[in-house]
């Protein structure tokens, strides 16, 4: 039989003379536990559309290497190690989360971060000869773009949640023209200056473009 010990002995809970804490751990948002820095992964081209994968499908493409070689696990170990590190095998992109006390929640955060990174890092191939900007890209262009029809509605800025998908499409194009802002601008019916301003209006967009440009030996946009 198990050691029968009355519930009274549960320590901190008793010490506090109340139920154990059920507050979510909001106090702790460790700035040091950020996903791996962008510079350590360079963009890759893929025809796979990771964006449309479900959680499970995406998870299946990942190795969760935190617990590799950690012995028999399960009932053998008291494992306070709830940190999760996901490696997305097809692209090599890594994301992690350690801020929560439950592995389950850390896995969800790591997966969400992985999605953001995939959006930023994985480029679709584009055939420039038949290029037509997709609607999500048209939406983030300034009105003066000559290819932007009236039906694209008002320009969507970086604070709008729809901006991200437009940004992906823009990065796909800039990647296809090897980082040349002038060439990309031509495809979008914009002046080089107008496209530069758009790129500089969002930090992650600017950083991605500049990373690509520096890998091609070009000056960064400022």
């Amino acid at each position: 039989m198990a050691r029968v010990i009355s519930l009274q002995c549960f320590s901190l809970a008793r010490l506090l003379q109340s139920r154990p804490s059920v507050r979510p751990t909001l106090l702790f948002h460790h700035p040091r536990f950020r996903p791996i820095s962008a510079s350590s992964v360079s963009s890759s081209i893929s025809d796979e559309d990771y964006v449309s994968l479900t959680e499970e499908e995406l998870m299946k493409q990942c190795e969760m290497d935190t617990f590799k070689a950690s012995g028999p696990g399960g009932q053998h170990r008291n494992k306070r190690e709830s940190a999760v590190r996901l490696r997305h095998v097809p692209t090599g992109i890594v994301s992690q989360a350690v801020e929560d006390r439950s592995q389950h929640k850390n896995r969800a955060s790591a997966l969400a971060r992985l999605r953001t990174l995939l959006d930023l890092k994985v480029r679709k191939t584009i055939d420039l000869n038949e290029y037509e900007p997709p609607p999500e890209l048209l939406q983030i262009l300034p009105k003066k773009s000559t290819i932007r029809g009236a039906d694209s509605g008002p320009q969507i800025g970086p604070n709008n949640s729809k901006f991200a998908s437009g940004m992906q499409a823009l990065l796909d194009l800039i990647f296809a023209v090897n980082g040349s802002v002038a060439d990309a601008a031509k495809n979008l019916g914009l002046s080089t200056g107008a496209l530069s301003r758009l790129i500089l209006s969002d930090d992650s967009l600017r950083m991605e473009v500049n990373e690509l440009r520096s890998s091609k030996g070009m000056r960064p946009l400022k």
């Binding site: 198990a2 050691r3 029968v4 010990i5 519930l7 002995c9 549960f10 320590s11 901190l12 809970a13 008793r14 139920r19 154990p20 804490s21 059920v22 751990t25 709830s82 929560d100 006390r101 439950s102 389950h104 929640k105």
Partner: peptide, 17 residues
Amino acid sequence: VVGCEHWRDLVLWVGEG
């Protein structure tokens, strides 16, 4: 020691036994 464990999205009461 703290009388609980964070498991999935739950905080479960645990103790000796």
